[in-house]
């Protein structure tokens, strides 16, 4: 067992974990933060994307011990005082989700993308989301939602 300390969505947790425990299982099974789902074994689908110390990471391809000392934001930590983040609002308004399984990862990846490219082209949005698979939307409305947010910021 290895002792870890992690801040997740603003709360600090200390736990003893098996070194092999995947970060995603730590979040889901130990902390009960089931908002972030798992979709594959090979880091292709991106459903499990969370933010670790300001960068998007795939929490299925990371050991909990590797994240020790880090600060994690999941989709569950995006809304502040009941106010949805701009991306959450845009995903809703644009119908950028259907079954919703990829949505947490997609939103976290989009958040990372906009941090790096605040005003992306449609093509940059598509490439920025290349690590996140969606089977429902054909990505059409996801791309639109992300562009909406970037345009909002231009206006602001």
């Amino acid at each position: 067992m290895t002792h870890i300390s992690l801040k997740v969505d603003g709360t600090t947790y200390e736990d003893d974990v098996e070194p092999r425990l995947l970060l995603i299982h730590y979040l889901r099974d130990r902390l009960g933060l089931t908002g972030t789902p798992i979709g594959c074994d090979t880091s292709n689908c991106g459903s499990c994307t969370v933010d670790l110390d300001g960068e998007s990471v795939k929490s299925c391809s990371l050991l909990a011990v590797q994240a020790d000392g880090g600060e994690i934001t999941t989709v569950q930590g995006l809304a502040q005082d009941g106010e949805l983040s701009e991306l959450q609002k845009a995903f809703h308004a644009r119908h950028a989700l259907q079954c919703g399984y990829c949505t947490p990862g997609m939103i976290m990846a989009a958040r990372d993308l906009l941090r790096e490219h605040p005003h992306p082209t449609p093509d940059e949005v598509r490439h920025g989301l290349e690590g996140n698979l969606c089977r429902c939307t054909g990505y059409q409305n996801i791309v639109r939602a992300v562009l909406d947010v970037s345009e909002e910021e231009v206006k602001a």
Partner: peptide, 21 residues
């Protein structure tokens, strides 16, 4: 109409079968 179903899905307040404890 934007969907009623979205609220819990975009905030991670989901109820996937694997979430059940």
């Amino acid at each position: 109409r934007a969907r009623k179903e979205d609220a819990h899905l975009i905030t991670g307040q989901t109820n996937w079968t694997d979430n059940i404890a």
